[in-house]
Amino acid sequence: MSMSLEERLTELEMRIAFVDDTMTTLSDAVASHDRHLHDLRNAMERLRTELVAVRGTLGNDAGDEPPPPHY
């Protein structure tokens, strides 16, 4: 059986609506992941800054120490 033109249009409209809904859902997920990644990058930068400050406060860096005598 052949579908009428109206049935074919209705089928296409339903498919387009499904694709549109899927794209919206995926776009929201990508935006959420982007915000989360941005927050993680900011947290890592804060930790890096704090680590540099702690190393400066301690006043000694293991890389600056001479090697032990047995080397």
Rank of each mutant, 00 (worst) to 15 (best):
S2I: 05
M3I: 02
M3K: 02
S4H: 09
L5F: 11
L5K: 08
E6W: 01
E7M: 11
E7P: 02
E11C: 02
L12K: 10
L12E: 07
M14T: 10
M14K: 12
R15T: 05
I16T: 01
A17C: 03
A17I: 00
A17N: 01
F18R: 13
F18I: 06
D20L: 02
D20C: 00
D20G: 04
D21T: 12
T22N: 05
T22L: 10
M23K: 12
T24V: 03
L26W: 02
L26K: 07
S27L: 04
D28S: 02
D28Q: 12
D28R: 10
A29Y: 02
A29K: 00
V30W: 01
A31W: 00
S32G: 12
S32Y: 02
S32W: 00
H33W: 02
H33M: 13
D34Y: 00
D34H: 03
D34T: 14
D34Q: 12
R35L: 12
H36C: 15
H36I: 14
H36S: 13
H36E: 11
H38G: 12
D39G: 13
N42C: 14
L47F: 15
L47Y: 13
T49F: 11
T49E: 12
E50H: 05
L51P: 00
L51W: 08
V52L: 07
V52T: 08
V54W: 13
T57D: 14
T57M: 10
L58D: 08
A62Y: 15
A62F: 08
D64E: 07
D64A: 05
P66S: 08
P67M: 10
P68L: 01
P68Q: 02
P69M: 13
P69Q: 08
H70I: 08
